[in-house]
């Protein structure tokens, strides 16, 4: 069996590039706060979504529509409409996080396939099976806090397909359960679809050093001409006790390509690439590489090695929680 490559598309051009590069599946969202990458200039309007899905289907690829923020009280209609429009546009599934929204979709769109977003942070077989039983969820995107043996244990106890992140940004907090961003800026992944938003970033020149600040808090300090990482809150440099450093996580991104054979063995159905905010050339290159890897694996050929390091934009790479070093 070939593992399914699930690829991000922030724009119609990226969707087409991903499909042409060999993505089995593309995920994308509407251009509003219903999706967790609600960045200016990104995402699809209704007609772009219909055209994108038609293009993917014509090329034998599937499209998943992420509607994975938590609907705002009093304004659930916006999210309900997004589900109906995705369904109508021919989406192969919607990716949801909010329990009330799952209940709505299961009731109003019984023939629409439901995937559980990573933002639901379903981290054990009991709750995954419960989502399947109650809402008919067919696939779960696993949180990035689990190790490969834990993923294998989950797959041994559930018939729900599992999808795991293998490349791109890395959350170290349980996804969908973090309000660090709204504490500092007022905007959060759950409510607004953004984390550490660029609108609240500023760079402050402090006598030869450059402070990268978020909501007025210094997240990184670098020498004036050194490259400054984006001030993502949980990957900042802080002090506690006697220690100063990256107390939560280093400014690293996830690359689990070396673990693909183990993930297959662990029963994982699909490999997900993070980055709907990325360019179409980045997306095409990452997809091409991962597709080559899973095809090689399926045909018993050796995996191509170390192919993606240069795409990490100078950031260090990590296998995250998948290797058990977090424990």
């Amino acid at each position: 069996m070939v593992m399914e490559i699930v690829c991000p598309a922030g724009t119609p051009a990226a969707l087409r590039a991903a499909v042409k590069a060999g993505a089995h599946t593309v995920y994308c969202g509407f251009n509003d706060e219903t999706n967790a990458r609600n960045f200016p200039g990104l995402n699809f309007d209704r007609s772009e979504m219909r055209a994108g899905i038609a293009f993917a289907h014509a090329h034998g690829a599937k499209v998943l529509v992420a509607i994975n923020t938590f609907p705002r009280a009093g304004e659930q209609t916006l999210w309900h409409r997004a589900i109906a429009d995705a369904h109508h546009a021919g989406a192969d599934a919607v990716i949801l996080a909010d329990a009330g929204l799952l209940a709505h979709a299961a009731r109003m769109h019984p023939d629409l396939r439901l995937h559980l977003s990573v933002q639901a942070a379903a981290a054990n077989a009991d709750i995954i099976n419960y989502y399947a039983e109650v809402f008919g969820v067919k696939r779960v995107v696993l949180p990035r806090v689990l190790s490969v043996p834990e993923i294998a244990a989950i797959n041994a106890e559930t018939g729900v397909e599992t999808e795991v992140f293998v490349f791109g940004g890395l959350c170290v907090m349980a996804e969908g359960r973090c309000s660090l961003s709204s504490y500092a800026t007022g905007l959060s992944p759950n409510m607004n679809g953004v984390c550490s938003p660029a609108s609240h970033v500023d760079y402050h020149d402090d006598g030869g050093v450059l402070d990268a600040r978020l909501g007025g808090y210094t997240i990184h300090r670098t020498a004036k001409n050194a490259p400054a990482p984006y001030p993502t809150l949980c990957k900042g440099c802080f002090s506690a006790g006697e220690k100063t450093g990256h107390l939560f996580e280093d400014p690293v991104s996830l690359n689990a390509e070396a673990l693909i054979p183990q993930l297959l063995k662990a029963g994982v159905t699909a490999l997900k690439i993070e980055g709907r905010q990325r360019s179409k050339s980045y997306v095409a290159q990452v997809v091409g590489n991962f597709r080559a890897a899973v095809d090689a694996l399926a045909e018993g050929r050796p995996m191509p090695k170390g192919m993606l390091t240069r795409l990490s934009e100078g950031q260090a790479m990590t296998t995250g929680a998948y290797r058990k070093t977090w424990r």
Partner: peptide, 13 residues
């Protein structure tokens, strides 16, 4: 620590 952001989730619970 449970995400109850809207009436739908509240009614479900």
């Amino acid at each position: 620590l449970i995400n109850v952001y809207n009436e739908g989730t509240l009614a479900w619970l």
